[in-house]
């Protein structure tokens, strides 16, 4: 059941991305282009998503536990550190270059454009590196 729930959540998430227009990198890049062909749609996507999540999370977290799992797995890390800010800054550069964050990269892949076929494997390699580097740095320190 946990697996089926995962599929349904991924499907709803992906349909949301496609309907909102965020699976189209041109729309994301135009959001970032205030000085040019500005399209403010992305702010409405974030607004709609945060509004539902903000209130929905409060209802859900009033329960003792999730329905199909023992505990809520919430991030425990509270540190504002160099890794957080460096990672976010680097991610923003990539997002500004390609107009694709990880979610839309997944919903764009089945449409098989040349750009996404180049982007997707590189995204996975970058993610893998992002997971390995903290361990390598810690081992050296």
């Amino acid at each position: 059941m946990k697996t089926f729930a995962g599929f349904i959540c991924g499907l709803i998430f992906g349909v949301g991305l496609v309907i909102s227009g965020m699976s189209n990198p041109a729309k994301v890049l135009n959001f970032l282009d205030i000085a040019g062909t500005w399209d403010p749609s992305l702010a409405f996507v974030m607004g709609g998503a945060v509004l539902v999540t903000f209130f929905g999370y409060r209802v859900v977290l009033n329960r003792a536990s999730p329905m199909m799992s023992g505990v809520f797995h919430l991030p425990q890390n509270k540190d504002i550190d160099g890794q957080l800010l460096t990672g976010a800054a680097v991610f923003g550069v990539g997002w500004g270059l390609g107009g694709l964050c990880p979610g839309p990269a997944f919903t764009a892949l089945p449409l098989m454009s040349t750009g996404i076929i180049a982007f997707f494997p590189a995204l996975l390699i970058g993610m893998w590196a992002g997971r390995m580097v903290p361990g390598i740095l810690a081992a050296r320190a």
Partner: peptide, 20 residues
Amino acid sequence: SAFGGALIGLSAVLLLALNG
């Protein structure tokens, strides 16, 4: 876009409610 965003929010809420 706001409707699509709300679906993204719904997915986030469901994933926490079901799988935590």
